[in-house]
Design a protein around this nucleic acid. Structure first.
Lengths: 165, 165
DNA sequence: CTGATTGCAAATGCTTTGCACGCCA
DNA sequence: TGGCGTGCAAAGCATTTGCAATCAG
């Protein structure tokens, strides 16, 4: 876990006149312990392993705080629960590719894509702030060979796309 | 409203061994009466004006049908309710730009963007199926002149971004 | 006829909130 | 000490579902 995260949160908390608490520390530790995406509920489970007292409500409240502080980002993976991505600090403009076959998520960055998007935005008369790209795709290797070697390359492990409820 | 939509739905219904009902006809008519994005609830309101009997449950069930038939597409505008976009029949690969200042949604297409995305996807070892791009941006003209002339260009009227609940 | 469809109300599931108590600054 | 933060349980809200009646083919 990036050692700067706790500090960043502390800065944010100080600037906003909020308070540092053990619950918030625990939640931050849990949230950034892996680079996997997670839901509020999954985070709650992780938090509970570190501290069996912290409540679900506090997890939700702290998630809001972390998003506001831009330490965490909500992403749309086509699920019903909000999913949080802790990797935007390392890769500020990464995007997501979802494998339709196995549901894994591959993160990727592409500066050309970023630039093209910025051009389009400006051409439309706007000032770019943020762009979100989600690509859904089939695994070509899976189709040809029956397995998904590409997925080894992803930093995200075990993350599966859930069925719509 | 595109005259082919009702037919397309009929085809879909026939293929799947389902049945055509007056409710479904009404809902389709309401859904494609404008090219605005809408939520289930907004659609329900429109439907009620055409037929005060149709239930909310049927609207939800029919929305699922229309998405499955690929006549309607769910899009992510950062709201809490699912938003539906009826414009993918006319513009199969369009994307969305959200004005942070006034909340309006501008639809745009760009073949370069599509191609670049396809390249990236293939380079990662996948076969492109669908891509979704959401750009959030500030209105440059608003900043300079105090008003938003660009927005006149959009096909979508009156659509505002709602606050998170 | 027969199974698909509907309306209603109840249920679901995620997320938010009111409130009283506790704790940080 | 003044409020911000927390836990708990109770809301809230969008969406789904069970069921009996109804309707399409």
């Amino acid at each position: 876990m990036d050692l700067g995260i706790q500090e960043r949160l502390n800065d944010f908390i100080r600037r906003k006149g909020l308070r540092r608490t053990s619950q918030r520390d625990t939640i931050v530790k849990a949230a950034f312990s892996k680079d996997e995406h997670f839901t509020a509920d999954e985070l709650f489970d992780r938090v509970r392993k570190l501290d069996s007292e912290t409540s679900r409500a506090t997890v939700y409240r702290t998630l809001g705080l972390l998003v506001e502080a831009d330490l965490l980002r909500e992403i749309d993976l086509g699920e019903n629960q909000t999913t949080y991505d802790p990797n935007f600090l390392d890769k500020p403009s990464h995007n997501h590719l979802l494998c339709i076959d196995c549901g894994r998520v591959v993160e990727f960055e592409d500066s050309h894509l970023d630039m093209l998007n910025d051009c389009i935005t400006r051409r439309l008369g706007f000032k770019p702030v943020r762009q979100t790209i989600k690509i859904e795709a089939n695994c070509e290797q899976l189709r040809l060979k029956g397995r998904c070697p590409n997925l080894i390359a992803t930093r995200l492990t075990g993350k599966r796309l859930r069925k719509k409820r």
